[in-house]
Simulated assay, not measured.
Amino acid sequence: MCCSVGFARSLGLALLPLALCCIIANLLLLFPMGEITCIQQDRLASYIWYFGGLGGGGLLMLVPAVVFITLGKCGCCWNQSLMMCGSVLAAVIGLLGSGYCFVMSGFALMQGPQCYTNYGWSYPFADHAGRYLLQPETWTRCLQPLHIVEWNVTLLCVLLGLAVLEFILCLLQLGNGLVNAVCRPCCYKQEYSLNA
């Protein structure tokens, strides 16, 4: 049990910086190139407003991180088993949060940024099914804000990577928690019968 609690705590400590990075990346998406004009004029891509990094990969991910870190603080065995089951629930919340972050970031990448082109404000890459990502020469269609495509692609790829890491960590704890929730009572029964 001590090993599984230590493992869960290390996963929680790993989730904290990932969640903070998701929050920062999502906030940077709201202010392209550090400017506030896009948010003031409502010129941000629609999927950015779903806050995949801020809500899913960030704030929601703090739940499993805190649960994993505080796991096993009580010395009572029954409470430790209950806490391990609670960590399974927290891991499921983390899986949902990281999944939401991944999906929203993927949709935002496929849609591309909203920018000013020769034909006015539009989504010039929305009908390309993400092919523009492999054609950087087409990114110059966006005249304003400057380098908006590079800004969005970089931050959204960061969010995708962070979401995958968070998903893997929560999946590891889900397996760890389930194994301990199922096997721990069996081990106690065997130990009791040996002592008897």
Rank of each mutant, 00 (worst) to 15 (best):
L11W: 00
I39C: 01
F125G: 00
R43Q: 11
I148G: 02
F7S: 13
A65I: 05
G75D: 14
G97V: 02
Q135S: 12
L162K: 12
S193K: 13
V66T: 13
A65M: 06
P64H: 03
L13P: 04
Y188F: 11
T117I: 02
G177Q: 01
L159G: 03
G120P: 02
F7M: 13
L60C: 10
W49E: 13
L29A: 05
M61R: 01
P32S: 05
C38G: 08
Y100E: 01
L96D: 00
S4I: 03
T70E: 08
L172M: 07
V149I: 12
Q41T: 04
N152H: 15
C38N: 10
G55K: 12
L16N: 00
I36F: 07
I24C: 02
G75R: 13
G34R: 03
A8P: 06
V179Y: 05
V179S: 06
L71R: 07
G99L: 04
C101I: 06
P145A: 06
G57F: 06
E150W: 09
L28W: 03
D127N: 13
F125Y: 14
S193Y: 14
T154Y: 08
Y132E: 02
M104C: 12
M83R: 13
V149E: 07
Q190G: 02
Y116H: 01
L160T: 13
T70Y: 09
C85S: 11
F102A: 07
L11G: 00
L169F: 09
N79H: 09
G161I: 09
G94M: 01
K73I: 14
F125C: 03
Q111F: 09
D127C: 11
L29D: 01
Y123M: 05
Q135E: 15
L54P: 04
L28A: 04
L109F: 03
W49P: 01
L71F: 06
Y119N: 14
A129F: 14
C76H: 09
L146M: 15
S81N: 08
G52C: 15
L159M: 15
D42F: 15
V92T: 08
Q144M: 11
P64C: 05
W49V: 11
M104P: 00
L15Q: 10
E150L: 10
A91Q: 03
Q173C: 03
G97D: 00
L71E: 06
I93P: 03
Q40Y: 03
S87N: 04
L11A: 12
Q80M: 05
C76E: 11
W151E: 11
G112D: 07
I23S: 04
G106P: 01
L20C: 06
A126R: 11
M1N: 12
L134D: 12
C85K: 11
T37N: 15
L178E: 01
C22S: 13
R131A: 15
F31N: 01
L156S: 01
C85A: 11
V92L: 15
Q190L: 13
C101D: 07
D42C: 08
V164Y: 07
L30W: 12
G175F: 02
C157E: 04
L95K: 03
F167E: 05
C186G: 05
W49M: 12
I69A: 05
I23R: 08
A181I: 00
A163W: 08
S105K: 05
I48Y: 09
V67W: 02
L15M: 12
L20T: 05
V63C: 05
L155C: 00
